[in-house]
Design a protein around this nucleic acid. Sequence first.
DNA 1: GTGCTTGCAAATGCTTTGCAGGGTG
DNA 2: CACCCTGCAAAGCATTTGCAAGCAC
Lengths: 147, 147
Amino acid sequence: MNHSEATHDLRLRGYRVTPQRERILQVFYDLPAGTHLSAEELHQLLSNESSTPISLATAYRTLRLLASLGMLRELDFSEGHKHYELNRATWEPHQHLVCVECSTPVEFTGAAVADAARQVAEGYGFEVLDIQLKIHGVCATCRGQGK
Amino acid sequence: MNHSEATHDLRLRGYRVTPQRERILQVFYDLPAGTHLSAEELHQLLSNESSTPISLATAYRTLRLLASLGMLRELDFSEGHKHYELNRATWEPHQHLVCVECSTPVEFTGAAVADAARQVAEGYGFEVLDIQLKIHGVCATCRGQGK
DNA sequence: GTGCTTGCAAATGCTTTGCAGGGTG
DNA sequence: CACCCTGCAAAGCATTTGCAAGCAC
């Protein structure tokens, strides 16, 4: 699914295709895979361009809408605000390592965790849509610095 | 580590043992394993008893303190507020299945995911303190009801 | 007695919402 | 041309913080 197919899909589902929604979708399609934006970041990014100013309220509303339609994935890194990224057909589970000392986040993806998780979910009769793993720990740098 | 060892540890680390902190620690030690409370829930629970009224601000402050000391674990279920539980010596990774349709949460623990996660973390030189897995999907009930 | 802690209330940060005007289908 | 969307500002939650009084050590 590309940008124009997405807007077409929006219309099909009974939602109107507004310049704001088109622009926001395009932003996410243009984003490198694995990049994610918060509502505030999206709003900032669109404020910088003179063409399509979008209110913060609309940014929030649109992100929620697109996430509820499955077009975007909602990520929660416990930073006090949510992040969103394009829900690509071939998604990888999101895995996040956070150092409790310096808060440095490391992102990665891996199959082993996903497989294990999928197996459990299926045991409960769940159809898996998204897998998010968060590991808290102490990074190598902070471990080195005494304690 | 039990309740009184915990308060002793508090003192050792230079923090004062106040009635509020003792009472909150006791609440968590009395809680069945796997149960978790939000700041609001803790505050409610303590408001019901005539003996130790604790302000909401103190509930928040104490939860944050105990979590930073590693005595409590901070859980984030994407419900808009955090939950806390006792960080027992033999903790199991927290795994959370959430149905995107009906929001029903299913909690479970399992070794397979933990092992896979631990392996990745060690690859990055991390000392693992906590593992939290969140799976979004559609539960059996909601899958049954057409869609 | 010193200064960490508490309570209160006000402030903050993220997100949602009511309402009136505007644009899509 | 009906109704969904947007923008604005105000409201809503969860959580944090400034300050004066209180209590642990």
